[in-house]
Simulated scan of single mutants.
Amino acid sequence: MLYRVIQKFGLDVLQWNEVDDSHSSTVYQCTLLHGENVYLKIPFTKLKFQRELSAYEILQGSVPIPYLINYWSGDEECPGAFLISALKGKPLTAKTTPTVAYQVGTLHAKMHSVTPPTNGDFIGINNEFDNWSNFIERQFQSFAADVRDILDERLYEKAIEKYKKMKQQLPSPDGPSFVHMDFRPANIIVHDGSISGVIDFESARFGSTEIDFTKLYCDILSLDSSLYQAYKDGYSSIRPLINLEEVLPFYRFTDAFNSIGWCKRRGVEKNALFLEENIARLKKWVL
């Protein structure tokens, strides 16, 4: 498939490497014959291709993102592919500075300031805001059968009870906003102390901002209070920030639950460490 995509884009590739930390697409970093670095991205499904393509159209000029050089709509064998410019820098890490955390906050708020097109044409990205509670329910229930195969019955039943109780305590949703749905450090690129941009939009929706803070909080913000405060200051400089303490417990819990189901679907052995981490997280919430 890689060679077909290279041929479709007419590229002279000197060398290529598959990117490891990509979970919804196959991504290759390619060095072209004249020295330029680009990325080839092949989403797993046509829907993910459509979301990614729509996100580039919607976000262009609003937040820093890579330049979409070209795309191919695919055929019966391939759902589609993208040729994308390489952002300078490396993924965000917990060793970052409050200055960068502030920039992450402003970037995130600018993304959340993007609202659905007034003509109602969401070009591949659904607007889930008006039925947000049902959207969360569908997501949770879609993984429940997979999770049940992994957990013992007692832990599973307690998790279901915990979910129902916590969901009732959620505040009114905040939006409608463009939500990334996978806003994690690996998708935020930093170069020389500044944000280069954000990548990977195959899970994006229009919905409530409350779902979009969990992964960044778990991986970085929860580890350093100065980073957390800087992020909140940056976000609040663009738009009002919801009370994260009200929503983070629920979404951290459901993230652990849904991740267990994700591991079941993608392969328990292949994702054994990630599975163990999320079972341990889930147990802390319910036991």
Rank of each mutant, 00 (worst) to 15 (best):
G175I: 06
S177R: 05
F178W: 11
F178H: 02
F178C: 03
V179W: 10
V179K: 00
H180V: 06
H180W: 06
H180M: 01
H180C: 02
H180Q: 04
M181H: 11
D182R: 04
F183M: 13
P185E: 13
P185N: 12
A186C: 09
A186K: 15
A186Q: 12
A186L: 06
N187E: 12
N187W: 01
N187L: 06
I188V: 07
I188N: 07
I188L: 03
V190G: 13
H191T: 05
H191A: 13
H191F: 04
D192W: 03
D192F: 09
D192V: 07
G193E: 10
G193W: 06
S194I: 08
S194G: 11
I195P: 09
S196G: 06
S196K: 10
V198C: 02
V198D: 11
V198T: 04
I199V: 10
D200S: 12
D200A: 12
D200C: 08
D200T: 00
F201K: 07
F201Q: 04
F201T: 03
S203D: 15
R205Y: 12
F206C: 00
F206P: 02
G207F: 08
S208Q: 14
S208H: 07
T209K: 00
T209F: 01
T209H: 00
E210M: 14
E210T: 05
I211T: 13
I211R: 00
I211C: 05
D212V: 14
F213K: 00
F213E: 14
T214L: 01
T214Q: 10
Y217L: 06
Y217P: 03
Y217M: 04
Y217I: 04
C218R: 15
C218D: 11
D219L: 12
D219P: 00
D219V: 02
D219I: 02
D219E: 12
D219R: 15
I220P: 06
L221P: 01
S222G: 02
S222W: 03
L223M: 10
S226G: 03
S226T: 15
Y228G: 10
Q229K: 10
A230D: 11
Y231V: 02
